[in-house]
Design a protein around this nucleic acid. Structure first.
Lengths: 192, 192
DNA sequence: TCGACAAGCGGAACTTAGTTCCGTATTGTT
DNA sequence: AACAATACGGAACTAAGTTCCGCTTGTCGA
């Protein structure tokens, strides 16, 4: 392994054009039809062949991650900010989860894909966990340190739990935010 | 509408045989491959053609409901029993949810199907809600009356929330029961 | 500017799965 | 036994994922 610079070789201009067209098209199609929309639809919207989609994004999860990467990063950052700005660690947790829920409920089908056991989505699951678990851990730890959060909940429980509560069709009898609020209340440290 | 007795006309013997073979086959295939297993697999296991599957169970949800009807009934009954037998309404709620979670986590893919927005599963969703919502409501109301459960949670939140928490692949970092326990703790009435 | 060659493209073709439909077989009845 | 009515099987059609290969285009050195 000599000469391993890790620098990606410059790609052809059309390849870069197509990738960006695909990202735009996928974002639009995901909004309209959810993250499980047919690959052909995305290819058509981008004006490319299906082969091109697969060349740039081998799995659907790669495409989904690419489309939402910015927002996931922003969500991660929002966690740090909440911790600095909020009145208390628990309040910070609440605010951050609010951001996370907002993100999930506005992306049709994303919460379901995140929790899916379809191997196609494993990369997606892994990416979200990689990026958000440390943030969740920090918030939880701060809460525990302040005596506001019970010490037997893990960041996985938090993220996967909230994700699970966000899954499913809209239904005016089910208020996701309220339910998530109940879940968070369950994480409060019991009064001594 | 003359002569409306509501009694189903007796069906042919082969039809009854096939239906029961299908139920057995579906149960086995659901265990092995989950509730989204290909219709052809079920037909093959039952030794019938795919047309026969559709004739008896027009949608996948119909088949799923038929396979699990007994257990759903049992779960509904368990709610009433818990209320009679447990030391307190909250304890009854906890026990009943335990039964419900047991049921869900042992049926591969069922929780996901329940929450799915695929119209194919609407009947399934509706059946579970029809059967279990009243039970949840009763348990919740008893808890509220006893001052043990907060009065702003609905049975839909309870069922759909717990369902959501049960979705997803097994992962030894995620303990469904513990997470559901946290959720239930969130439903406790706050100390006055 | 102009090849030549690598990089990239498109979409036909193959696979898997859901769903429908109709000619044929089975059942119950007279 | 003969006849309806009922039910069956699986071919055929549709939709979607995925692969593959002949063709096009961009890049770069001469």
């Amino acid at each position: 392994m000599t000469d391993e610079t890790g620098r990606a070789p410059r790609r052809r201009a059309d390849a870069r054009r197509n990738e960006s067209a695909l990202l735009d098209a996928a974002a639009a199609v995901f909004v309209a039809s959810g993250v499980e929309a047919p690959v052909r639809d995305i290819a058509a919207k981008a004006g490319v062949g299906v082969g091109t989609v697969y060349r740039h994004f081998p799995t659907r999860a790669d495409l989904v991650v690419a489309v939402y990467r910015h927002q996931v990063e922003a969500c991660a950052v929002a966690g740090e900010e909440a911790l600095e700005r909020a009145d208390s660690p628990f309040e910070a947790l609440r605010r951050w989860i609010d951001v996370f829920v907002d993100f999930l409920v506005t992306k049709h089908g994303l919460a379901g894909a995140l929790q899916s056991d379809d191997p196609q989505f494993q990369v997606l699951h892994a990416y979200f966990l990689d990026r958000l678990l440390p943030v969740g851990t920090r918030l939880l730890e701060a809460g525990v340190a302040a005596g506001e959060v019970r010490d037997d909940v893990t960041a996985i429980e938090l993220m996967r739990g909230v994700g699970g509560l966000c899954i499913g069709p809209a239904d005016d009898r089910y208020d996701v935010r309220h339910t998530v609020g109940v879940f968070l209340d369950g994480m409060r440290a019991p009064a001594r």
